[in-house]
Computed example of a mutant assay.
Amino acid sequence: MNAVQVLNFQQSSVRTVADNKGELWFLANDVCEILGYSNPRQAVQKNCKEKGVSNRYTLTRGGEQSMTYINEPNLYRLIIKSRKPAAEAFEEWVMETVLPTIRKTGGYQIGQKTTADDRTGLRQAVAALVGRKGIDYSSAYSMIHQRFNVEAIEDIPADKLPEAVAYVHALTLHTGLTGEVLDREPLPTPQPALPISGNALYDLAVAVRYGAYAIRMGKDVSAPLKQLGCKQAVRMWTVWAETRSRLKAAANALEALSAHADAEHAAKIRSILPEIRNLSAV
């Protein structure tokens, strides 16, 4: 396994380590503290499968100690059995932020600095804003700093740069900005209303994601089940083969509908879509 990496969930820290296959393992003590288990060892023994439990020496305040780590399936087992309200938010953070980022980029970086090349689009947007509205660069950058709560554009996370560029473009198009600084962000362009709420659309996206997980897992276990003589094995593989295109179409439909949802739910829905598409890929 690789070096331990600390991830931050709300006010808590979760120590993790990636194995040689790139799969993430979570320190059981940290997970149990978030989920409200008073006895981590007992919680792991009662709820986790032994195959997904591993010990490794980890540096602590008391020196190196043998600590228990659990894999992703065992993490979900602890989440499901938890009665703490934070469990749902923790699951959402893992499934919609941490794991998709790792699978897309190969790592989950916290506070990683961007390069000058990364910020080219933002600088160009600022130049257009200054030229179009007749304000100075200091005022333009001050609005960005205030909007993203940073002291310099170098402190804007890489995944927030597209949002920063879009914000500056919105300022450029805002008719009320002429040689002055906005006291608030421009109002978004009105979108046609959905017949359902943004929250209901998000629930639908989550259901599609879980369905994609179930269908993909059925495909993964169909071969060994067939060897064991399971009559449903062929059907499990067939369901996956015939459903992949529909899952992709569902992801595309959700992406189109998310444009009409409120910003918060639209962002949450879009974060799920790469995972659905990945699960439906060959």
Rank of each mutant, 00 (worst) to 15 (best):
R103A: 07
Y137N: 10
M217Y: 08
Y141T: 01
D30N: 11
Y69F: 14
M217E: 06
W237R: 12
L35G: 04
V150F: 08
A212R: 01
Y76G: 08
F26Y: 14
W93P: 00
Q191C: 09
L78W: 07
V165G: 01
F9W: 05
Y37W: 09
R270A: 07
V94D: 00
I196V: 12
G134Y: 06
I70L: 11
D118Q: 10
G63K: 09
V6D: 08
P195C: 12
A43V: 07
V31W: 06
E96G: 13
P85R: 13
Y108C: 04
W93Y: 06
H260Y: 09
R15N: 04
Y57L: 11
A267H: 03
T97R: 11
D155G: 13
Y57I: 14
L225A: 11
A200W: 03
D159Q: 06
R209G: 00
L247V: 02
V168R: 00
G62S: 13
F148H: 00
G106A: 08
G52C: 04
A170M: 04
R270S: 07
S12E: 05
K219D: 06
I196F: 09
S13F: 12
L225T: 04
R41A: 15
E180S: 15
Y167R: 03
Q65R: 11
G131F: 10
C230V: 13
T58A: 10
T58L: 15
A249D: 04
L35E: 01
A212N: 00
T243W: 03
T97M: 11
N252R: 10
V94W: 02
A152Y: 10
N278S: 13
T60V: 09
R235I: 03
R77G: 10
G176A: 07
